[in-house]
Design a protein around this nucleic acid. Structure first.
Lengths: 120, 120
DNA sequence: ATTATAGTTGAATGTATATTCAATTGTCAA
DNA sequence: TTGACAATTGAATATACATTCAACTATAAT
């Protein structure tokens, strides 16, 4: 592998380290999925929704009230969370009750909180 | 608490559940910090950088080559990661070597991967 | 059947942010 | 001290996406 196979305009490339790292990088597809997953938690509204649903199963209107936001925006976000299989719902008459679909979410929250250095 | 204290235009509010949930919600500031933190991992480039740095400490140019991206964009992202105290760096001559600053990152990655259901 | 309402959906808008480009800083070597 | 280069930085651009608004669907009650 000669230097001009590298994309970068510099002379001090540590070829061995770069090659070793490249070798160890998993399929790039994993990073897309990983980022997609973390992005879900990387929004204040969604984080609140998930925390709230971790306390109680609730209908859309209840969640909207807990967060002080419109039904529509909550519903949009719930749609996103549903598509990512992070929440699931059950329909009872006109109402739709949402709940967490995944135990990992709780674990992730706790690690995140630990990182931030807050107790709750 | 009368119904019109609620923000939502619906009749089926489960007052007890809403009040209970509100009571259990932590300081809203926590959600901002939490979301801010997860947002960091919620970007493909940053996820790759962190994974790469988990394999080897590297200079900016090396990272750029591993990811096949420009030095500038990598440097911008490293700046973000540094400001969030997720990576740290040491300067050696003209070069700046970056490494992970935080063990939680690894744990978070693993949980994320577990969620996605991939092995690596 | 008609009306009211819980929830969803699509389009539009505004905001956040990733990457590029160009200029700049700091350090080494000659 | 001058030239080369690793890295940073700011501004500009482009893209992604959260919320709003309005229209629509489905269910329940009268």
């Amino acid at each position: 592998m000669s230097k001009n196979e590298f994309i970068c305009d510099c002379n001090i490339i540590h070829e061995d380290v770069v090659k070793d790292t490249i070798k160890k990088m998993p399929d790039m597809d994993l990073f897309n999925k990983l980022a997609e997953f973390f992005k879900i938690l990387g929004d204040t509204t969604r984080a609140k929704i998930l925390y709230a649903l971790d306390q109680n199963e609730m209908c859309v209107c209840d969640i909207a009230n807990v967060l002080g936001m419109s039904k529509s925006s909550i519903s949009h976000q719930l749609g996103t969370l549903r598509r990512m299989a992070i929440v699931k719902c059950r329909k009872v008459g006109k109402e739709v009750y949402y709940m967490l679909d995944d135990d990992h979410v709780k674990g992730l929250f706790e690690l995140g909180i630990e990182h931030i250095g807050h107790g709750i």
